[in-house]
Design a protein around this nucleic acid. Structure first.
Lengths: 189, 189
DNA sequence: ATGGTACGATACAGATCTGTATCGTTAGTA
DNA sequence: TACTAACGATACAGATCTGTATCGTACCAT
């Protein structure tokens, strides 16, 4: 059957969960090893350093994000509705206990130095989102698509951070309505 | 003249700068002592622990925020214009190299556990901002003032995080326009 | 059967961090 | 002048962290 998860997968899943919930600096390799039931030596056999494990997690999070982005917007017929659908899905996610914010914002907070490798990965991710938003905003007929995209990025990141901060009564519950207001204001329909 | 800064002040100013720029976990007490030119023993004579120093910084940051809030909105004649003025000033600040994000969002990222004292201080700060926004939104005639306030909080926090992440070409340069759009949409004038 | 590969367990090196203990010095004050 | 309070310098205790070294074992393919 070969359905057993490999030690590397086991390690990765545990690290991903701990990094996301508790932060990158707060989680040590000993904790990851103990929690996953995999030896620390095996960890270092698969990942040369803790930073490599962090980078692997960030790259996978980027893939996850785009997988979700595609699936949440696929059924929306227009660019306008695609953006709305994304923010509707985002709102549902960030008002869920499973959400601990944004892995990329979290790494940027913990490692603000621009030359840290993880910071670079995060920055590139946000730039791709910005580019994608800009394209959709343009196709939706916005007069200033780059400006609208930036405004939507602020909303998205604000929602992620609210979720990391608030346990209940989260301001992010209004992110979809806010996105709609910005879209309507920028498109003018 | 007695104008010399006291060792405690020297210590505090150095710690504030380092915490804000590099993060709380990344900055150790030895670094603070060395950078300030004050002995580590003197640090612990004034602050029982590093956490106490962090809390002192957060409380002072809260005061700073409200001082700025009052000064930036004082000359605006209406609640609507007060909110616009705040976001205009925020935009100017976050597009400046002196800005390293929001001390409260930063602490929430680095210490996500809700029972960490610093997290509590941060949460209370954000709640006060939310309350203040709600009051102004209500006085400005918004149909759903709490919702508008939440949307503005998302924008504000998104702008802070963008600044921590981006060095140039910062999406936060459009935060004032976004706030205006949300206000106009919610008030309907 | 045998050899290679992956993993577990453990100990450890070396760095770093928070916080304390000790002692010397300096400055202000009665 | 002598006392006191604050500070500096240094060493250190104890914990924690990343990463490595070593050795034993289990499994798998030839």
């Amino acid at each position: 059957m070969k359905s057993e998860t490999s030690p590397k997968d086991q390690l990765y899943q545990t690290a991903a969960k701990l990094f996301y919930q508790h932060g990158y600096r707060a989680v040590g390799v000993d904790t990851i090893a103990a929690e996953s039931g995999i030896s620390k030596m095996t960890l270092y056999r698969h990942y040369p350093s803790k930073d490599d494990l962090i980078i692997a997690y960030l790259k996978e999070s980027d893939d996850d994000f785009w997988r979700y982005f595609e699936s949440s917007t696929r059924n929306a017929p227009t660019p306008y509705e695609k953006l709305l659908a994304f923010f509707q899905g985002l709102q549902e996610y960030v008002t869920t206990p499973a959400c601990y914010g944004c892995p990329f914002l979290n790494i940027a907070s913990e490692y603000p130095e621009a030359d840290y490798p993880g910071h670079q990965v995060a920055l590139e991710h946000k730039q791709r989102v910005r580019t994608r938003f800009t394209r959709l905003a343009k196709d939706a007929g916005a007069a200033k698509p780059a400006m609208l995209a930036d405004q939507l990025v602020l909303l998205m990141d604000g929602a992620y951070m609210s979720t990391r901060m608030f346990e209940s009564d989260n301001p992010a519950r209004h992110v979809a309505a806010a996105a709609r207001a910005l879209l309507d204001s920028a498109i003018g329909n």
